[in-house]
Design a protein around this nucleic acid. Sequence first.
DNA 1: GATCCGC
DNA 2: GCGGATCAACGCATT
DNA 3: AATGCG
Length: 296
Amino acid sequence: MASTETVHDVEVTHPDKELWRGVTKTDLAHYYDDVADVMLPHLRDRPVSMQRFPDGIGGHGFYEKRIPAHFPEWVDRVTVPTADGEQEQVVVSNARSLVYLAQQACVTPHVWLSRRRHLHQPDLLVVDLDPSGRDLPALRRATRLVGELLDGLGLVPFLRTTGSRGYHVTVPLRPEAGFDEVRAVAAEAADLLVEREPGLFTRAARVADRGDLVYLDVLRNGYGQTVVAPYAPRARPGAPVSTPLEWEELSSVEPDGYDLARVRRRLAQRADPWAGLRRRARGLGRARERLAAMRS
DNA sequence: GATCCGC
DNA sequence: GCGGATCAACGCATT
DNA sequence: AATGCG
Ligand SMILES: [Mn+2]
Ligand SMILES: [Mn+2]
């Protein structure tokens, strides 16, 4: 019985430790190694926050933003300004670093919406749909309405499961406007939807005030805020994965519909639906104009 | 998961 | 050398 | 300033 395993030149200690029921550290390391080709383009140049569960998802978990001193020099990093100074965070630039995150029991990497060259200008806009209840048809209709509105604003919305309870709609941007401007546009779009469909959407900050409506979270669009990385597993039973989808799949794939094994199979059979996302980047100018017109 | 401290 | 304690986020909105 | 939230 070897007490360590080697995956992509990374020593995996406690290789048989279960992070999820039936899913070991070695399994996670191989998953990361296998999906690296599709995952890395979405991680490239983005500061990462690591959500770690050294004793498995049933144990104590924590977020880690600062890169620990013991990380090897071949794990890339970036220094980012914070409210009181600056700090160094991980950047996942290659498959080996991703496998190293598995060794660290990082079950879910979270990434910034901006990249190192323009830390203050996001190249993604995200509308995070958080259902309060269990009405899946309503959640799907809500998600489709978000996509249609953003499309109507001249933007190109992309869809993914969160691996948890909701979906994300993601729009690629040219990194020009600051976070506050991007968030303001997202908030105005969300408010418009609440106005149109008050029985479906809410923007109430307090959970208790949301009833069973779908919460439109646009606060992800902030400096230093993160979203779960595409193809990241989640710390939930069954090792569900946040999975990019074609819009046509919205009606057939549930928010936690893909797990580690299913994503492997999916990617062996078809390309990443988000592969062309960067080429769809737009500025916010036209969207602002159309939004103003719709509101009047 | 990794490090540090005390025994 | 081993067991135990300790540490590992933060920006934005609301009140 | 403190709390809630993701
Ligand atoms: Mn431990
Ligand atoms: Mn969400």
